[in-house]
């Protein structure tokens, strides 16, 4: 079959030329594309942000840029960046995940002082998504430990989202049980024993709860809870914001190692600054994230129930302590996770 052979030959030459072209264009031209490596449930948010940032940057700097996105569990993403995923900026959901990068000189150690509000342009909190009518009556952290409550959360080992749930439950329990460690651990063990599925990313957890109808309550960021109700309809799900929860700040950083190598620092910095602009804050607020810009706060006030937010600093003495005492191998988190 000479024609087939010929076809293969042509195909392979074509392929070689194509890949060469791909590689060369990457190497020669001054890059106008940046990669935003982010946590799992921010998919739609950054799609919307990018769509508005591109014309805004074109207007101010006169350059057409492309913003690429990659989403997965925040800690997993930090690992991929260390392995060479060329993120120009990271938009994570937990301080510890950027600290991982700072520890390996990918990010300046003083990254939190580079942008306002400790480099967190917006925040959220762990909240509950329950089935229509809330048949199990889940309204507070106490209800999660009850028998017969099926919980879905992302894996605290791979996702910042899951770790916030752990921290929020613990912060509540510390107050509830007045610091009695035995009672706190007992409570947390009961909660985690109720978990039906630990997905590795926040969005997978939502899919498990929504598409596959597993569990009675999904615990995830308020932005994901409200966004899901909007996406799939409030005739099937109810959002429940517990009276007390944990402040979940979403830190951002420029990955110095990558932008200096690629020459993309101006775009990367402009991108993160854009998140703080009134326009950026407005988009972020429209995706049910809580923001700090006064106009956006006022505009989206109605969509957020009142909640008392505990800070990591107050409940646990800061992220460094959290990392050492709770998240380290064999730490307090491992003690309450079932069979991990």
């Amino acid at each position: 079959m000479p024609s087939l052979k010929g076809a293969y030959l042509k195909r392979s030459i074509f392929a070689a030329a194509l890949t060469l072209a791909l590689g060369v264009s990457q190497a020669w031209a001054q890059p106008t594309d940046i990669l935003n490596v982010s946590y799992d449930v921010s998919r739609e948010l950054f799609e919307a942000v990018n769509a508005k940032f591109i014309p805004s940057y074109k207007a101010s700097a006169g350059v057409d840029v492309t913003v690429n996105q990659s989403h997965a569990g925040s800690s997993k993403q930090a690992g991929l960046v260390l392995e060479g995923l060329a993120a120009d900026v990271v938009t994570f959901n937990q301080v510890t995940d950027i600290e991982t990068l700072a520890g390996k000189q990918f990010v300046a150690t003083d990254w939190q002082s580079k942008y306002p509000n400790s480099a967190s342009p917006f925040y959220s909190l762990p909240a509950f998504l329950v089935r229509e009518g809330n048949p199990k009556g889940i309204v507070s952290w106490a209800d999660l430990a009850k028998d017969g409550v099926g919980i879905v959360i992302p894996n605290p080992k791979t996702s910042g989202n899951g770790r916030y749930t752990y921290l929020a439950a613990r912060a509540w329990a510390q107050e509830e049980f007045a610091g009695d460690e035995a009672k706190i651990e007992d409570y947390l063990k009961k909660v985690f024993a109720n978990v039906k599925v630990f997905d590795t990313g926040g969005r997978q957890a939502t899919t498990t709860f929504v598409e596959n109808k597993i569990g009675d309550v999904l615990i995830t960021f308020e932005t994901e809870v409200l966004g899901t109700v909007k996406a799939v309809g409030d005739d099937q799900y109810d959002a429940v914001t517990p009276p007390v929860s944990l402040l979940a700040e979403f830190p951002v950083a420029v990955v110095d190692k990558v932008v200096d190598e690629r020459g993309t620092r101006p775009i990367a910095e402009a991108y993160l600054n854009y998140l703080y602009t009134p326009e950026g804050q407005d988009i972020i607020g429209s995706f049910y994230n809580r923001v700090n810009d006064a106009a956006a706060v006022e505009k989206y006030k109605a969509q957020f129930p009142e909640v008392r937010l505990i800070k990591v600093e107050d409940a646990f003495g800061g992220w460094a302590k959290v990392k050492a005492e709770h998240f380290a191998e064999g730490g307090l988190l491992d003690k309450v996770l079932p069979n991990l």
């Binding site: 998919r43 690429n68 990659s70 995923l85």
Partner: peptide
Amino acid sequence: SGAIRGQTNTLPLQIELLFNDFNV
């Protein structure tokens, strides 16, 4: 792959991504 949308996502990965984006 690193799952960079529109860059390093092959079709089977794109299926999983869309599935998780509620885009069944």
